[in-house]
Design a protein around this nucleic acid. Structure first.
Lengths: 118, 118
DNA sequence: TTGCAATGCCTTGAACTGCGAGGTATCATG
DNA sequence: CATGATACCTCGCAGTTCAAGGCATTGCAA
């Protein structure tokens, strides 16, 4: 039922991977996640709120995350934490990504697979 | 004018990267490229002809590739070779991809960038 | 010889993701 | 009191990729 499962598009799902990775150990809220991704990647990856919030909602709908409202110094925030299903999902995404990166790296390094010209 | 340049989508362009990488040293034809990508990635990446041919046409239109018709054992093939512009484009894509992979790797490995909690 | 698989080219429509732009509200600072 | 930062959200577009199909030829097998 989840569209992500029916579509074998090999590239997508990186925002989801990053978000789950960040939520792996401690709970965070949306706005914080946006900045964490920007900061930790040296602004190489800068996913906006228009990406993060829908992903958070989708993951919660799928039971990969749970949320709770919390007020911190007069600010109302929605903290998200990974569930067991979320961690499992992370494991899958993580493996897929590694596999992909290795495959691409392999083609780029190239040489060893190159068949002799003619 | 090239749509690829106006869209800051950080994920895309992998088929293009792979194709230019393969054409870096020797000319190949579309059908061959499809299989080369499948073979060299251990079927981790399996872009179809519906992906490869449009990319080839676009790259040729942009002057990154040149094509020539060739008949080999009764088969008519269109061989593509990278131009200087194509090699420059490959260099850019290659760097972008590496940057992206490193950034994601960094978040996944995690720890070292993590700001102290509190 | 007749059919099927592989080779080789191509296009089309749909799907999905990701993005910018915009909207709301609160708080702190100048 | 106005501006920027915080914090949430949604909408509709755009771009990439994909599956599915169509066409023609070759070669092999039944």
């Amino acid at each position: 039922m989840t569209p992500r499962d029916t579509n074998p598009n090999f590239m997508n799902g990186v925002p989801e991977l990053l978000i789950l990775t960040l939520l792996q150990h401690r709970e965070m809220y949306g706005y914080e996640i946006v900045q964490a991704i920007r900061d930790r990647t040296g602004a190489v990856i800068a996913v906006g709120e228009g990406v993060v919030y829908p992903v958070l909602h989708g993951l919660e709908r799928d039971g990969a995350l749970v949320s709770r409202r919390k007020s911190v110094s007069g600010r109302s925030r929605i903290y998200y934490a990974a569930t067991l299903a979320g961690l499992r999902r992370l494991a899958g995404l993580s493996q897929s990504w590694t596999q992909l990166a290795v495959a691409i790296q392999g083609v780029m390094k190239g040489g060893q697979y190159a068949q002799p010209i003619q």
